[in-house]
Write a protein that binds this DNA or RNA. Structure first.
Lengths: 119, 119
DNA sequence: CAGAATCCGGCCAGATACTG
DNA sequence: CAGTATCTGGCCGGATTCTG
């Protein structure tokens, strides 16, 4: 018997977790961090179009979920590194699979859309 | 050399595909259809809290992307079935991995959040 | 450099009503 | 049953400004 997707759970609803996973910026950040720790500014440069606000919010929520660890080096100017936690790494590899899928099928999807829109 | 995540592509930007993948309702629908074809009303019942509008929009865009096939049986009342396409099945299995991850780590995430919010 | 705070406009999701 | 059409309010995300 499959679990109902919208079902509640004592401590944490399944969908709450999926929402995080499904968040646009989170997916991109997790993928990048899969390559190794990155500084705040590195992430900002690597992710085209993300605003400071959204990068900060995204990193905070990932940290809150125990997927990303934040390390501050109090030099001047300050340096902040972000790295995946062990659990974060397991999610990142799932996401890597998704991104690989997107890369493999982007042309198929584009063609499908073109055909659909034409009719 | 890794591809820049925000980079453009001649026919279809990678992020466009990821946005679809990352869409809350799409993920749930793709997962359900992984079990086999379903009628419109079955999907609506299985996904707690989705509105008619969002279910229809989600199914339309999945169909447009070539991930879901829509079959109308013009009886009275009409019957409409939705099934994954071959490519849709490959995505659905990726998503199944994601959902399995969420299930395995929901407690960890919940605990992390609780600890973060307490401090 | 790595944010925090504030303001604001657009869009999207939900609710509602109607239909072949 | 399986939609379509329309309206509306909330909230999300971008832009801007300021700081240790």
């Amino acid at each position: 018997m499959r679990e109902t997707i919208g079902e509640d759970h004592p401590t944490c609803r399944l969908r709450d977790v999926l929402d995080r996973v499904g968040d646009k910026w989170s997916v991109l950040v997790m993928d990048l961090l899969g390559d190794g720790p990155k500084r705040y500014s590195e992430l900002q440069r690597a992710i085209a179009g993300i605003s400071q606000r959204m990068l900060t919010l995204t990193l905070r929520s990932l940290e809150r979920d125990g997927l990303v660890e934040r390390t501050v080096t109090p030099t001047s100017p300050p340096r902040v590194d972000y790295a995946l936690t062990p659990v974060g790494r397991t999610l990142s590899s799932q996401i890597a699979g998704l991104i690989a899928w997107a890369r493999q099928h982007r042309d198929y999807v584009a063609a499908s859309r073109a055909r659909y829109d034409a009719s």
